[in-house]
């Protein structure tokens, strides 16, 4: 934390009841009675970036709820970040509708599987989903891993499971993805960025 030399103080009811401010005409009792009729409303302002096109416009997201108290929060408004040197507070028709994307009815909420030949989805737990997928991966890798090519050169690759990566994912996701895929020996990798 980079504290500057500013000092803090608290404005409390006791302070406002002091004699000096009263000398200036402040009537503490009435003022404090008013305070008790008020309720505090809390919103959070968070800086983020529009995920659509590569202008990567800065946005400010307003949400309800108290993050420090871990209460459930909901986005109430998104606007352009006036400080971002590129978009300077503006948003296009897509960016202006970001809240509807985040709150889309088609958001996935839990893992599902569609079994071979089945005609519907089935809700499953994360553990079951990840266990089953990892088993598939290992079985395919063990069966098809190529340690050496036909000329005897060590190649250590696994071509029979492919991975298409998002270009809406953040850099950190991209980095972890490529690190893990290469360690597994995967070479059938491509990204949305190509098209």
């Amino acid at each position: 934390m980079n504290m500057n030399r500013r000092q803090f103080f608290k404005v409390c009811s006791a302070g406002l009841g002091g004699s000096s401010i009263a000398l200036m005409g402040f009537s503490p009792n009435a003022a404090l009675a008013e305070v008790r009729t008020f309720k505090l409303a809390r919103a959070t302002e968070t800086r983020n970036i529009c995920p659509y096109c590569s202008v990567s416009c800065g946005v400010l997201i307003y949400s309800t709820g108290d993050k420090s108290k871990n209460s459930q929060s909901e986005i109430i408004h998104i606007e352009g970040d006036p400080d971002n040197p590129v978009n300077r507070g503006t948003l296009c028709p897509k960016g202006a509708g970001l809240r509807d994307m985040i709150q889309s009815q088609n958001r996935l909420k839990w893992p599902e599987v569609r079994e071979a030949g089945a005609s519907e989805w089935k809700k499953i737990s994360w553990n079951e989903a990840l266990d089953r997928i990892a088993k598939h991966m290992k079985a395919d890798r063990d069966a098809n891993f190529v340690a050496q090519n036909k000329d005897g050169v060590t190649v250590n690759r696994w071509t029979t499971t492919g991975f298409l990566a998002s270009s809406a994912a953040q850099n950190e996701t991209g980095y972890l993805t490529v690190k893990m895929l290469r360690a597994l020996g995967m070479t059938s990798i491509d990204t949305q960025a190509r098209i």
């Binding site: 505090l40 409303a41 959070t44 968070t46």
Partner: peptide
């Protein structure tokens, strides 16, 4: 001064807005 940054400690990114309901 840029928004969404505490002007007191310069911690970037997230701030809370506290206001009085209906006033």
């Amino acid at each position: 001064a840029v928004r969404a940054r505490c002007t007191l400690c310069d911690d970037p990114g997230v701030v809370a807005y506290l206001g009085i309901e209906d006033a």
